[in-house]
Design a protein around this nucleic acid. Sequence first.
DNA 1: GAGTTTGAAACT
DNA 2: CAGTTTCAAACTC
Length: 740
Amino acid sequence: MDVVSPELNSLLPDEIMDTEAIAMEEELPAEHLAAPPQSEPEPPQVPMETEVPEIVSLCPATTSMQMTSASTDAQCSTSSGTQLLLAPSGLITGTTTTSVKTTGPVVTQNLPKISSVTVPANHQLIINKVASAPAADGKSPGAAVLKPEGQKLLVAGLSKTGQPIMLALPHTWNKPATTQGTGDAKALPTQIKMVTTVGKPVIAVSSASQLMGSSTTLQAQQLKTLQITKKPPVSTAGPMITKLIITKALNNKGLSSPASVAPVVTGRVVTQSTPVTPARNLAIGETVSTVPQNTSGNSKVAISPLKPVAIINISTYRTIYTVGGVGTSQFKTIIPLTTPPNVQQIQVPGSRFHYVRLVTATTGSTTAQSGGSTNTNPSIQPAKPVMMNAAVRMSVPIIPAQSIKQVVPKPLTSAAQVVTTSQTPQRLIMPATHLPQIQPNLTSLPPGTVLAPAHGSGNMGYAVLPAPYVTQIPQSAFVTLTSSSTFSTATPIQTQARLSLNGLSTSEATSRPRKPCNCTRSQCLKLYCDCFANGEFCNNCNCVNCFNNLDHESERLKAIKACLDRNPVAFKPKIGKGKQGESDRRHSKGCNCKKSGCLKNYCECYEAKIMCSSICKCMGCKNFEESPERKTLMHLADAAEVRVQQQTAAKTKLSSQISDLLTRTTPAVTSGGGKLPYTFVTKEVAEATCDCLLEQTEQAELTNQPQAVAERLILEEFGRCLRRIISFAGKAKTDCPINC
DNA sequence: GAGTTTGAAACT
DNA sequence: CAGTTTCAAACTC
């Protein structure tokens, strides 16, 4: 995956730069995502395509910076009511503000909800905003650690000048949790608000009672602690480390004192537990580095394929967060851009590329208001609704910044099988090379382009991600992700992209292995090359002197520019919808066939399985509705396709049966000291089975059975053989249940 | 697998 | 814009 340079990003049209949505990747380590589903209000309405309820949602910023307990706002509330409130930039005097909420589901109205991160109950939410230094372990200098020491809370961080920030919490810090642990229904969770302006961290800690006033009735005694460590960049171009650590302990039955504050060590929530319900963590990693750490000048984005990307709208940090996998510490998204860390995603249906726009964090001009008062300042732009929903989550394999070829997909675990794109060839459309001349427009974006809208101006960056890396996870999948303590996904979460590509869904297009190119002269930098034309890197191709790779980003970018100069819609899918009202697809330009009759794959229309249209300039066209030649070809093609499908199904069934047999006959492999107790598929058995199948084949041939029938008979015979084997196996097992 | 055909892309 | 050349895929043998 690659990230486009800010210069290139700046060339992208503004119309796709809807900054309404601010993106944030979140990582969801599996061990942090165990949360039983709870009833929750309706998920927030998100501006982007969404098929899945948000896991982390950002509510429109209201006017106050005060940290609040779980809000009842339907748009902001979650299953557990946990919220992460992020202040929009400028709410507090300073350029960067962050509010931290540590309370439970207590409803506080008129409180500023710039953004919210919702996590299931009993979850811990950790937001790591990692910049140039590997701060996932919290050892980075900018990591803010929020831990209780007696009744004090130490918040360590770095100010803009790099000076550590040490803050102490008032004695009331732990009291609410303690009372909760005792079951005091009136106990209120402590709320911590940490506001870090650039160079001027401000932290406000107060108990829920203080914030809530007379609101003493707790729907649930939940404690949430959110720790935010933010290291402001020393310089505008320097790396910035920002960590958001949210620890949430939810206990509807009351919290014990130790659970009042989740110990956070080195930037990670270490424990957060209650006597009743084990704490769970939700980690959201954010990389906001503005300087590549491991890159040699190439801005590249590496996103784990195991990590669905949640888009969170944060006005202050327009950043992409990756939702990490399970139980790993690899939950971080590296966005080594030379541009500010803000990232947004624009999704353009019909395209296969995902543009992640990095938007410069704007300096807030508004004044933060704490204390729960409603900010009526109209100048404050409320944060947009959460975009963090499965529909727009991205899944990109973690790749070293040096070369995308070094991608080593992380093994999927049962809990992390949310995304399955590791097998997809690397794709990248635009290098991060400076190329101000490129001014692509929406229509010229490669097929499958997904663009992240972003607000604002200034330096912008587009991380152009191949669609296969940007998966849209079905809602059910992410629900499972957030609701299951094991993070297991019962549903196959193969990419379910809704984008279409030449009439095929993205999933179809991406699931089908791309044909390797054989370019020899074009260096794979011209549209002759299908890989290049499709906006893909060459991968496992047979091309010669290929420049369509990360090693030749500059050349590649120039080639892209050249193509766009020649044809602004060069990367637009040729097969699109017909005129308005027409349902059939048709070639955007039409073909120019002269000899093929448009009935061979030379013809782009025929190749796309569409008929020629009036815009075609073909000669002797036979690719029209009533063409008998076409019908004949189609019939033959259909027959061949059916045949292939049958064969595939037969093979699959056979494999399944064999697998099932082996599974059933080896029940005690592990328990038996590694010795197979039942190995019935011996050589003799296999030979006998083959003999049966051959005999069946011969009979089918003798009776002149059609091949399809013959295949069925053979399969049936094989099934009988398997049943016999299984039967004998079961009998043998019964006769010798222990030591066999 | 080598050679030919074809039409889109690139070039003039 | 038209004609020509280049190119790689499709096709044939």
